[in-house]
């Protein structure tokens, strides 16, 4: 790793504070750290010795400028990045394993004793999400299958969250979601559905803008 020796910068010829020593002079006995803490506390309670010191006021202004620039630094970094194509997205997605969220194996019947047929819990959750998403104004959230899903015939309760947008009547939406989910589960799986609990957990407007 290349190194470069940098001489200590001589004191700035401009402002009243001299930063060349361990602590800048002209701060009337205060330190930069004290002033920074004072800013953190929104200058409350007021400290006369700081407020009455011209050197401190200059240094405080400098610290505030630094803070302002710091707050927006990352956002400006993002704006300054060159435009990229989508390959960075696909290279990230390619590394993700499907098994991580596959969950339990849900059995499907077959007479043949050598057959081991299953649908993953992840696949069923995807089914439930699709069914609910198809209801106008609904975006599905979390899905839970409660019960011994790995045992054929055991009763299972489906527990889902759904977000409803644009002021659709809530009881109606919950009902529609329940019916859509039930239809899809009956069609594709052999789960013994004891209940489908739908929680409308949020009513929100679409996000303004895209990536915000």
């Amino acid at each position: 790793m290349k190194r470069s020796k940098k001489p200590i910068t001589p004191a700035s010829a401009t402002g009243a504070a001299d930063y060349s020593g361990d602590e800048p002079e002209g701060l009337d006995g205060h330190t930069i750290e004290e002033l920074n803490d004072y800013l953190d506390d929104d200058r409350t309670p007021a400290r006369e010795s700081i407020d009455n010191s011209p050197g401190c006021q200059i240094a405080l202004a400098a610290l505030e400028r630094l803070r302002g620039l710091t707050l927006t630094l990352l956002d400006r970094d993002v704006l300054a990045e060159p435009a990229r194509d989508d390959t960075w997205v696909s290279s990230i997605l390619e590394n993700l394993s499907r098994e991580v969220h596959a969950g339990r194996d849900i059995p499907i019947r077959h007479d043949d004793t050598a057959a081991r047929l299953t649908i993953t819990e992840g696949a069923v959750r995807g089914l439930i999400r699709s069914a609910g998403d198809g209801v106008h104004g609904v975006v599905m959230g979390r899905c839970r299958l409660e019960g011994a899903v790995t045992e054929l015939g055991e009763p299972v309760t489906v527990n889902v969250d759904a977000a409803v947008i644009w002021g659709h009547p809530l009881p109606d939406a919950a009902d529609r979601v329940r019916r859509a989910v039930q239809a899809e589960l009956r069609r594709h799986t052999e789960l013994n559905l004891a209940a489908i609990d739908v929680t409308i957990h949020d009513v929100h407007a679409p996000r303004a803008g895209g990536t915000g």
Partner: peptide, 14 residues
């Protein structure tokens, strides 16, 4: 031939 086990897993339904 015959298999001692045939396991088929459905991982996605779309």
């Amino acid at each position: 031939e015959a298999a001692s086990e045939i396991a088929v897993q459905v991982s996605s339904i779309g």
